[in-house]
Nucleic acid binder design. Structure first.
Length: 413
RNA sequence: GCGGGUGUAGCUCAGUUGGUUAGAGCACCAGUUUGUGGUAUUGGGGGCCGUGGGUUCAAAUCCCAUCACUCGCCCCA
């Protein structure tokens, strides 16, 4: 009863502040590139995700929080952000004014077994560049991500891995040879990879099974099956990253679990999070709009990043404004401090009233809330129209006339 | 969904081959200081030993189940 549902957690002030700091940093960074904040519902018709992610994907087949509403409609708590945003583009008939550049942040839901950095309700930030087919847009969204890591001081902890899945023609050709290759070796594959062979053969490439890895070594390489268009596209993206001096590593085994990806696929990975290496991942999804019933493709690219994982990587403290504690001494002062606190707040100062206890416990409270200063107000001070301002770091204090109080507090803060 | 580990005070953890009233440090509250916090000192509150069942004269301790957390797998951010 008092414990939260499996895989969910409370964000108490310290954690909430850290996570909000990350969201704010990302929102500001994205806005410098013209990505504006949007927000879509956290639940959608199930079809929004079932059709776009692919029925066979793990997310759809076993990880969605699905429920029926009172009319029997199948609804689902969103497991990711991109499909909802594409749905919003189509619902709001924005297809004639593309491209659009969006930033979003919010909770996502997947019915998984919780682990470090993995929750059932988790939080993502992401950007989507919708309606642009040029490789420069791929470079741009990766650049937003890189700038964010710089802003958060995490560039030393992450590595950008990139790959091309090719266009549909290249991918289909490669998929065919890969299936042929692994079908011959089926007996040697791990149990998991036997299933992958049926459902999503590309996924065999990033299997962690040692036996699989040996087979993967000599498997056909996706790179050799990219047609001219796909190779040229990848070349342009890599060139752009080079110009921007964004370091990357080509990873030919980097693939995507979802059906709608093509061309550029990338991940920022880390070795600081145990088995979950991906901190931010994205790719190009030109065919998503069609999967959702739109007649033509809407070429698009974006990424999403897990706030919980970013937070685990950040070891520095998040600084917050230290308050001023205001402490009444005696019954007359108790009503007077209300007025003074209100006055100081209107001057933009962060003032916390101490409501309960003797002077000693008031001071302890001031200490606990990390107040920089305490304002002490007793009968003597009321008569003199002054207040005692005590610096809690140094232990020094000074009697200040009320008329100069604001100036004094602002000057010494 | 599969496998391993851990659940004792708000937190970090002791707790003997099962044995009588379950401990420590930190944190919290109060006194030493009736108008001054952090340090010191003295005292105090606080535990269905995760939960339910079983074995036993006797269970925090052994067994089973269950829940939660955690690590790995699958998958993902």
């Amino acid at each position: 009863m008092t414990q939260p549902f499996r895989g969910t957690y409370d964000q108490l002030p310290e954690l909430a502040a850290r996570q909000q700091y990350i969201v704010d940093a990302a929102r500001v960074q994205a806005s410098l590139y013209g990505y504006d904040l949007v927000s879509t519902p956290i639940f959608e018709y199930a079809d929004v995700f079932c059709r776009s992610l692919g029925e066979s994907s793990d997310i759809v087949s076993k990880e969605m929080f699905v429920f029926d509403d009172r009319h029997g409609d199948k609804l689902v708590l969103r497991p990711e952000g991109t499909a909802g945003i594409m749905r919003a583009i189509l619902s709001n008939k924005l297809t004639s004014q593309l491209p659009e550049k969006y930033f979003y942040a919010g909770p996502m839901f997947r019915y998984e077994r919780p682990q470090k950095g993995r929750f059932r309700q988790f939080h993502q930030i992401g950007v989507e560049f919708i309606g642009e087919s040029m490789p420069g847009s791929d470079v741009e969204v990766i650049s937003v991500a890189w700038d964010l890591f710089e802003r958060l001081g995490l560039t030393q902890k992450v590595e950008l891995q990139i790959n091309s899945l090719g266009d549909s023609e290249s991918r289909q050709a490669y998929r065919d040879v890969l299936v042929t290759y692994f079908s011959d070796l089926k007996d040697q594959l791990s149990e998991d990879s036997k299933l992958r062979l049926e459902k999503n053969p590309l996924r065999i490439l990033d299997s962690k099974d040692p036996g699989d890895r040996v087979l993967i070594e000599s498997a056909p390489n996706l790179k050799d099956y990219l047609n001219d268009i796909s190779q040229e596209f990848l070349g342009s993206v890599l060139e752009g990253l080079g110009i921007l001096k964004i370091p990357y590593v080509l990873n030919p085994h980097l693939v995507r679990g979802l059906d709608y990806y093509c061309h550029t696929a990338f991940e920022f990975v880390t070795d600081c999070l145990g088995s979950h290496s991906a901190v931010l991942a994205g790719g190009r999804y030109d065919s998503l709009a069609q999967l959702m019933g739109h007649k033509e493709p809407i070429p698009s690219i974006g990424w999403a990043s897990g706030i919980e994982r970013l937070n685990l990587l950040m070891d520095q403290e998040i600084s917050s404004i230290r308050p001023i504690s205001i402490i009444p001494i005696g019954p007359t002062a108790e009503t007077q401090v209300l007025v003074i606190a209100q006055w100081l707040r209107r001057e933009g100062l962060k003032v916390i009233l101490s409501h309960h206890g003797n002077l000693k416990s008031h001071m302890k409270y001031a200490n606990r809330i990390n107040a920089a200063k305490a304002i002490l107000l007793g009968d003597t001070e009321l008569e003199n129209h002054t207040a005692i301002v005590k610096c809690l770091d140094r232990g020094t204090q000074q009697e200040v006339g009320l008329s100069q109080l604001v100036q004094y507090l602002k000057a010494s803060s």
